[in-house]
């Protein structure tokens, strides 16, 4: 991996971590723990511009760093972020490679699966199916957050054209 590429990835990890921290300060009281998914902007951007494993590295390091900053490392919140983050990453990588699938579709699906992953961990940890009451709300909220992230990344892709030799 060339130095320039490592620097790019490090920058993206830093931006994703800061966005992840900032969004934790913006509470949405409708459903506990629901966030805007700003860090997903970076993850989606990296999926489109970097190799799959590099985007995975950014996702994993972002989740660990943000949980360390918030003091939630290895507790329930961490595993919820991890499952949501990994599931949405996997789905977004798969969808990205399908022809005629727009970035908006990829983004909304990612947001949707992120919520599903989190709620599954909550149900397993709490051992109570009552948490499932949040599912419809989380599903509905994933549409605006997915659209916002998708539109932002689409605009980013228009303006930031990384030349192949620039990052390789």
């Amino acid at each position: 991996m060339k130095l320039r590429r490592i620097v790019f990835i490090s920058l993206l990890i830093a931006i994703a971590s800061i966005l992840g921290y900032v969004e934790s300060l913006i509470p949405i009281t409708l459903v506990p723990g629901v966030k805007l998914g700003l860090a997903n902007i970076v993850i989606l951007f990296s999926i489109y511009h970097f190799k799959w494993y590099e985007a995975l590295i950014i996702t994993l390091i972002r989740i660990v760093l943000v949980s360390l900053v918030l003091g939630s490392f290895l507790n329930v919140g961490f595993f919820m972020s991890l499952s949501g983050g990994l599931l949405s990453y996997l789905l977004m990588v798969l969808l990205k490679n399908i022809k005629n699938i727009s970035i908006l579709f990829v983004s909304i699906s990612g947001a949707l699966v992120h919520g599903l992953g989190q709620i599954s961990v909550a149900i397993i940890v709490m051992g109570a199916s009552q948490v499932i009451y949040y599912l419809p709300l989380i599903m509905l909220l994933s549409i605006p957050t997915g659209v916002i992230v998708g539109v932002l990344v689409r605009e980013l892709n228009k303006h930031i054209k990384l030349e192949k030799e620039e990052i390789e």
């Binding site: 329930v76 940890v125 709490m126 949040y134």
Partner: peptide, 10 residues
């Protein structure tokens, strides 16, 4: 419902 994941109560 009010759910607290830190303290495990609902």
């Amino acid at each position: 419902p009010i759910v607290c994941l830190d303290l495990h109560y609902m």
